[in-house]
């Protein structure tokens, strides 16, 4: 019996996890690391530029590694965050993206449930789902002119409310399609048992199905938060001063004095960090989410 535990003897145990990679694997790993570094370079470059003294923007040698190629400073960050417009943009984007996501979840989750559980006769469920899905590929530019006119008539131009409503519209189909898939993956017997015991449909949805679907509902909330945060075309259609969002504020980094790379880099980082972090929290759901449920990751 003791022999089986000796290394090199008949392999009853699964291959040892700590074996050294072969040469081919090592080469492939190096290749993968290089590929990843290429894709991370622009983000790294923004970070590097944001930490430089403005006069060093173009003079830093090599890859601009902080502490090696230059002495990093947080002055650009401090300067940018001190500007009231930056803070307003951050506050607006937070309110708008959060509001739009919550609104989309509020409307979308019950609809997703309806598509996953109930049977519609006049229009089959599948066609209803595809109809929701087709909203997702709608080019926003096709709707910005009417949106602008409607919001002008309602006196909602340059308000957070208008942007909450419009962003919610564009992310709603996403929520419906993703959450529907989650409900489909849950056994319906649990809810049926609750219904037999006298629960209402709303009760079965709210107390039985929704808690089970919560991880996926939350994940799709996070993903659509990123979408709404990243929106630009709706923001420049509606906002001008009060309701500017972070991407719009970003676009203001180019002013008459020319492009200020150091500010631009700080603003780019400020814009990118929240959606990236939020999306990473929902990592497990990203493949399914981005392919609108067509591919399970």
């Amino acid at each position: 019996m003791a022999e089986a535990a000796l290394p090199g003897t008949a392999s009853a145990a699964p291959p040892a996890p700590r074996r050294l990679p072969s040469l081919a694997e090592a080469l492939l790993s190096v290749l993968a690391v290089i590929a990843t570094m290429i894709f991370l370079f622009p983000i790294y470059w923004a970070l590097s530029q944001s930490l430089r003294d403005p006069i060093e923007t173009f003079t830093v040698a090599g890859f601009g590694i902080p502490w090696i190629d230059f002495e990093p400073t947080l002055d650009n960050w401090r300067d940018q965050l001190a500007i009231p417009e930056t803070r307003r943009a951050l506050a607006n984007s937070t309110v708008i993206a959060t509001g739009a996501s919550l609104l989309a979840l509020l409307l979308g989750t019950p609809a997703a449930y309806a598509l996953a559980r109930f049977r519609f006769r006049l229009i089959p469920n599948r066609d209803l789902t595809v109809w929701f899905l087709s909203q997702r590929v709608l080019p926003p530019v096709a709707t910005v002119v009417p949106f602008y006119l409607v919001m002008r008539t309602l006196g909602l131009l340059d308000t957070q409310l208008a942007l909450v409503l419009l962003n919610a519209t564009f992310i709603l189909p996403f929520v419906v399609v993703i959450v529907r898939q989650t409900f489909l993956d849950l056994p319906r017997e649990l809810e049926e048992a609750a219904l037999v015991d006298g629960a209402s449909f709303w009760g079965a949805f709210w107390r039985v199905a929704l808690p089970l679907a919560m991880p996926s509902v939350a994940a799709s909330g996070l993903i659509v938060f990123s979408f709404a945060w990243n929106d630009f075309i709706l923001a420049i259609t509606i906002a001008s001063r009060e309701a500017i969002t972070v991407p719009m504020h970003m676009a203001g980094a180019v002013d008459t004095r020319g492009v200020q790379f150091w500010f631009m880099s700080v603003r780019a980082m400020i814009a990118m960090i929240p959606p990236v972090i939020v999306a990473l929290l929902a990592q497990r759901y990203i493949v399914r989410g981005l392919t609108l449920g067509a591919v399970k990751g």
Partner: peptide, 25 residues
């Protein structure tokens, strides 16, 4: 390959980076 989960996660970053910020970058 070595450290696949880490590299895979790192590859995700561009997808959610704000397009307008990426373009200025």
């Amino acid at each position: 390959i070595v450290a696949r989960p880490v590299l895979r996660t790192a590859m995700l970053l561009p997808i959610f980076a704000t397009p307008i910020a990426v373009a200025y970058l």
